[in-house]
Design a protein around this nucleic acid. Structure first.
Length: 277
DNA sequence: CAGTTCGCCTGGGGGC
DNA sequence: TGCCCCCAGGCGAACT
């Protein structure tokens, strides 16, 4: 499940492998993949455009083309592959084929079909794109600061974890890193976010950025061994301290990590190290 | 309006 | 072995 670090890694790898190639043709095999515009309009507009800039906002990939910007959200299982156009591929789960230069193809693979693509006129500012209307500051955006987070949470009744998952405030965190950030902060995931102080939010930003940057670095080292596949796998989870570690000893106090369903999500934490204040 | 639940999808795993 | 059901999880729509 790609979160900000994995999306960043995919973006950098695609930038390296695609560069400024032109899209010569495109085949969409699952129409709902294209959220907007229509599939016919998507094809008509995108064919002939070159890749120009590679950007990211939270978990959204943004490929700036000549006139438009291709916005992609991988959701749970979306993956890109680059390979020779005649090489075999998984027909069942490959939903889009972009034909590039030098007999290369960019394949979009998504077992569960949750991922979506959008094509917008890039002359409009990205904050008016419908797909991004609920996306706030990227976790690494320098404009995102503790005062802002403190001010927007004064009367919020939601939990810390739910707040971390809300892309409207900090964009890029998913369930895995939300669990990790709560652990790093020493806060119970169910702690009401309105009880955090400005100092807590300073620590929250440091923890968030440290963890995400560490994961990007891990992804960057992992990606070097990749050949044509750009998928995300469990290698990123090597450094996780609580997520997926049910019943394993806490790295700090050795008590077993517990897993509970909180607000419909698998939540891993240490009952000793993480208190509700 | 803020907060909660549901639906989208499919493969994998547990229970029987 | 086989079948059914549940779970995983991001996000927007629909609901309270």
């Amino acid at each position: 499940m790609p979160e900000l670090p994995e999306v960043e890694t995919v973006l950098k790898t695609l930038e390296h492998m695609i560069g400024y190639d032109v899209i010569k043709d495109v085949v969409i095999k699952y129409d709902k993949l294209i959220a907007e515009p229509s599939v016919a309009m998507f094809k008509e507009r995108i064919i002939g455009q070159h890749f120009r800039r590679y950007k990211r906002l939270g978990k959204y990939l943004m490929f700036e083309l000549d006139q438009d910007v291709l916005v992609v959200h991988l959701r749970m299982e979306g993956k890109f592959y680059i390979q020779d156009k005649d090489a075999p591929f998984d027909e069942k789960h490959t939903h889009a084929i972009f034909y590039l230069e030098q007999n290369k193809v960019l394949l979009y693979h998504d077992t569960r079909k949750f991922g979506r693509m959008y094509l917008y006129d890039k002359s409009y500012s990205s904050h008016i794109y419908p797909a991004l209307k609920n996306v706030g500051y990227d976790a690494f955006d320098p404009h995102l600061n503790a005062s802002y987070l403190y001010n927007v949470t004064r009367n919020k009744k939601v939990s810390l974890k739910r707040f971390l998952l809300d892309q409207h405030y900090i964009a890029g965190i998913g369930n895995i890193y939300a669990n990790e950030i709560c652990f790093r902060l020493g806060f119970h995931p169910g702690l009401k976010v309105c009880r955090l102080t400005k100092k807590d939010f300073e620590a929250l930003l440091v923890a968030t950025r440290t963890i995400l940057a560490g994961a990007i670095k891990a992804g960057g080292t992992t990606i070097r061994s990749y050949t044509s596949s750009l998928g995300v796998d469990g290698k990123f989870q090597l450094q996780l301290k609580v997520h997926g570690r049910e019943n394993e000893p806490c790295v700090v106090c050795s008590r077993p990590i517990v897993k509970e369903m909180m607000e419909g999500r698998g939540t891993y934490y240490c009952k000793e190290c993480q208190k509700k204040k």
